[in-house]
Amino acid sequence: MDTLIQEFPQIRNGFYTTVWLLLFSGLISTVIGTVLASFRVSPVASLRALGTGYVNTFRNTPLVLVLALAISVIPTLGFNNLGFSIGIRDFTTFFTVAMLGLSFYTAAFVCEAIRSGVNSVSAGQAEAARSVGMGFGQSLRLVVLPQAFRAVIPPLTSIYIALAKNTSVVAIFGVPEAAYVMRKLSNQFTSDLWAIFIGIALGYVVIVMVISAIGTLLERKLAVAA
């Protein structure tokens, strides 16, 4: 227990990094995933193929491989100064690259969840949208996706929860998030292993509970509007 209290600032910083990874990757993967989903349901065959190819590649590859690839490949493409800062927080190139790897990986799952949501919206909705003269993009954006998002909140919640836990994989690549801090502390304070593990696990539980709560809230809010 003493270790947890004594090393609290380090653990707290680790979780800050975890939460930042989660927020950035969550946002980016949602954007990429939505674009991919619109590719996969589009009338253009080459876009559909692109979307399918992406999903098959990233969903079928273990996250560790995606991250290892991102970390070794992205800097060699000339992107070797991807560090940035927001306010007083600085983010290293490693952070950015790992975050992008997580985003690319998660986007494949987001895409499939949204695609299933699009399929759950009756075909008549898109037909009605087209009948008043909307193009494919407009009917998707104004009519189908808003209804699809309502249906995909439960699966998306699961995907963001998985993402929250998947952020721990970037520890292997030296990004000092919660799991990295845990490994460091457990090497340093071998007599306090249980406390360290349980303390860190509780941190993740809190994050996941917050995601679930937001999901439940959104689900309830959108359900009333129906």
Partner: peptide
């Protein structure tokens, strides 16, 4: 061309 469907298809949201 105005279209009216059997199942109405009003935008549910």
């Amino acid at each position: 061309v105005g279209m009216v469907f059997q199942s109405f298809n009003l935008f549910a949201h």
